[in-house]
Design a protein around this nucleic acid. Structure first.
Lengths: 265, 265
DNA sequence: TCCATTGTATCGCTAGTCGCAACGACTGAT
DNA sequence: ATCAGTCGTTGCGACTAGCGATACAATGGA
């Protein structure tokens, strides 16, 4: 006697997976509210494959709690003050959330290769290292956080410049400071390097800031594909060679991709 | 027979207020996750005045949905990738959420007084008007959005300068451009004005940028008390006099307070 | 005018969720 | 060692909260 036309009874629709059923739905609704200007009851019920009544009850609760509001004239629903406030708090500084998000991936990278790993954030037209994990080499390389770094001679900096070049077609041609004998100081050479960086999706800077040191960096992009941060490995050039191994490159790119996709809901 | 020792039965604790009960709790839990580095099951259950089991089940659901994570070693819970991503999306640009939040208040102000109302956002050390509502005067004053405004001769700009002065003890003494005969150009006079602004919690700039025009502005601060935006009324000086009426001042301050408190969860 | 679609309200019914109480694993004090 | 007090976790039976179904009042094109 399989229930053919059960009068009531929660349908198996998505009722299985465990956990509190109401929560699974409300999270989906919150995501919808966060990503769109407004949503409708019927519209949502179709997308989430459930009934209007259910969506309505949940939305109404969200309105009670000020997590949603209803456009005047009793129409569609939109994100409420509380949801927006929650957002501002969860990402304390615009980026603090990102740091939390990146930490597990950074740990994994460090454990796998043993190099110093760091996370740089983009602030307008500058880059700042906000988190670093020391490598486990006996004699290792460290880097100070929150220090202003030159852009043209660092791996993360090149990623920013490459992004700006791709977006605006040009970069400000300030004089390029020669930090070592390997620093790229010729604007045209730098332009070529940046085009290569943009295409390959990673950057290195072998002995371009400090002799004997190399770094490898990959871009982290948000849900709008904006460049928001970079993850980098840093070590003696003895361990990260001028032309880094495919393995190292792929791991760095994968890590950046992983964090990027986590930013996309 | 009032249920004296009902075996089970949801307690009336907070079960009344209507809406989906599970949602009310899960929102509180999300807020806790967003505001603290980590939370414990017992700790939360006490604070939210419910049982451990309930909090546990809800948290477990959040973990399933990647809205929470558990610190290694099966310990306390923290915000998950999905919650952080939600935050980043809901506040598209760091401020877009704020604009949505402010709009109802701005509408109310405009309807009440009929002056042009605008919302300025703080970007580092500059101020930009991002939203404006035209007043309903027959001959009115408008202002272009996204235009860079001078700081020392505008109401919103003074609020930023006053904040920086209070925080850093000084302000950069660049030459102060004289835009009208009323522009404050003497650094010491400006300093006095800024101290007054900081103390009274509002600023005006009567005919200091354009003759015949006055503006009145109050500060919007976030949950950390950081100055993030300003709300301003703009009109001919005929309607907003050199010494604005208490009524107008209070309304502007109240509006700013309202938006500020909405930012605080 | 009619028809389609919207958000909303009502009403049983039951299964999803609750409260309770006990569990093992820790930790620190005795 | 032992004990008391945590912690997060689990099982169980009870019951109400939340569900599906269905109907309704507005709206707005056709």
């Amino acid at each position: 006697m399989a229930s053919n036309k059960t009068k009531s009874g929660r349908d198996d629709a998505q009722a299985n997976l465990g956990g509190v059923m109401a929560i699974r739905l409300v999270l989906k609704i919150l995501e919808a509210l966060a990503t769109r200007p407004s949503v409708g009851v019927t519209e949502l019920s179709k997308e989430l494959d459930t009934t209007k009544a259910r969506v309505f009850r949940h939305l109404r609760t969200l309105v009670d709690q000020r997590y949603a509001v209803q456009d005047e004239g009793s129409e569609r629903y939109a994100a409420g003050a509380r949801l927006i406030a929650l957002s501002r708090v969860a990402a304390l500084t615009p980026y603090e959330g990102l740091v939390r998000l990146a930490r597990p991936t950074m740990n994994r990278l460090r454990d796998e290769f043993g190099h110093t790993v760091n996370l740089s954030l983009v602030y307008g037209d500058s880059v700042s290292i906000v988190e670093t994990l020391e490598g486990n080499a006996v004699i290792g390389v460290v880097i100070r956080t929150h220090a202003g770094m030159p852009l043209h001679s660092t791996a993360a900096g090149k990623l920013l410049l490459a992004d700006r070049l791709a977006r605006e077609g040009k970069i400000a041609d300030e004089p390029l400071e020669k930090l070592t004998e390997n620093t790229i100081v010729d604007p045209e050479s730098l332009r070529m390097e940046l085009l290569r960086v943009q295409e390959q999706g990673w950057a290195a800077a072998p002995e371009e800031t400090v002799l004997g040191i190399n770094a490898l960096s990959a871009p982290i992009r948000d849900h709008r594909n904006e460049l928001v941060a970079m993850i980098s490995m840093l070590s003696a050039i003895q361990f990260i060679s001028r032309q880094p191994s495919r393995e190292l490159i792929n791991a760095t790119k994968a890590a950046a991709e992983e964090i990027s996709s986590a930013l996309k809901l």
